[in-house]
């Protein structure tokens, strides 16, 4: 679970870097998208590297979701009679919403793929074969931006707990200082990633990034 989570983190960091290319304008962004497809050529066929990344992500996703489901199921079985009254003294909101938050992310990821990768849906009815234009069209629609921002908030929360949790799961937090560092890192990763992703939609909606 921790490993798959960290793979995701690595991926979203790259992904975010790519997205931020949108600030460099239409051509730079599309070039980057094209570059992803020809990465590794001629050692690998076209889209080869991309498919490697994709398969790693798909495997990770399966592992991640499967372990999440297993943990969830175990937790439900571990306490079938609930407390009449139960206080939360130490848990963060993020830690308590990992499961529903994760599910939300799953739904979002599906929509996201439908939107940009598999289905290529342009909600404003425009062309879908130009990645940059698809992006701008999408985020020009206020409710799409809202969905994406909500998803980023969910992701931030997921990472806030997830980063520290994975450090703990990997056995890297064996003393107070390491624990504090891991928790701080959780905040940083959450803010950087969710913040970084949010910039593009916000700037599109604000009219700074245009076709």
């Amino acid at each position: 679970m921790a490993v798959s989570g960290i793979i995701f983190i690595g991926f979203v960091l790259l992904h975010m870097y790519g997205n931020l290319k949108a600030f460099s304008g239409h051509d730079a962004y599309n070039e980057y998208a094209e570059h992803l497809r020809i990465l590794g050529e001629p050692m690998l066929p076209r889209e080869g590297a991309l498919w490697i990344i994709r398969s790693v992500l798909i495997v990770s996703l399966v592992v991640h979701v499967a372990s999440a489901a297993a943990l969830w199921k175990r937790a439900r079985r571990a306490r079938r009679t609930q407390y009449v009254m139960k206080k939360n003294n130490a848990s963060s909101l993020s830690s308590r919403t990992m499961r529903w938050g994760g599910l939300t992310l799953l739904l979002f990821i599906i929509w996201h793929l439908v939107n940009f990768t598999i289905g290529k849906v342009n909600v404003s009815g425009g062309a879908t074969n130009d990645p940059y234009n698809l992006l701008v069209d999408t985020f020009d629609t206020w409710w799409m931006t809202l969905i994406y921002l909500a998803a980023m908030l969910t992701l931030a929360m997921h990472l806030h707990h997830g980063v520290w949790s994975s450090a703990q799961t990997l056995g890297l937090t064996n003393n107070t200082r390491a624990r504090r560092n891991a928790k701080t890192l959780g905040w940083i990763v959450a803010v950087v990633i969710a913040g970084g992703f949010s910039l593009v939609p916000i700037f599109v909606l604000a009219g700074v990034i245009t076709k």
Binding site: R79, A90, A178, R179
Partner: peptide, 29 residues
């Protein structure tokens, strides 16, 4: 039939002997 740990930290807050979460990291390691 105990559940799996997701590092939430309610345990250590309830522990009368203040056993820290480090021990779970050690366990995982």
């Amino acid at each position: 039939g105990f559940g799996g740990c997701t590092n939430i930290g309610e345990c250590t807050a309830a522990c009368p002997k203040e056993i820290p979460l480090d021990v779970i990291s050690r366990l995982n390691w």
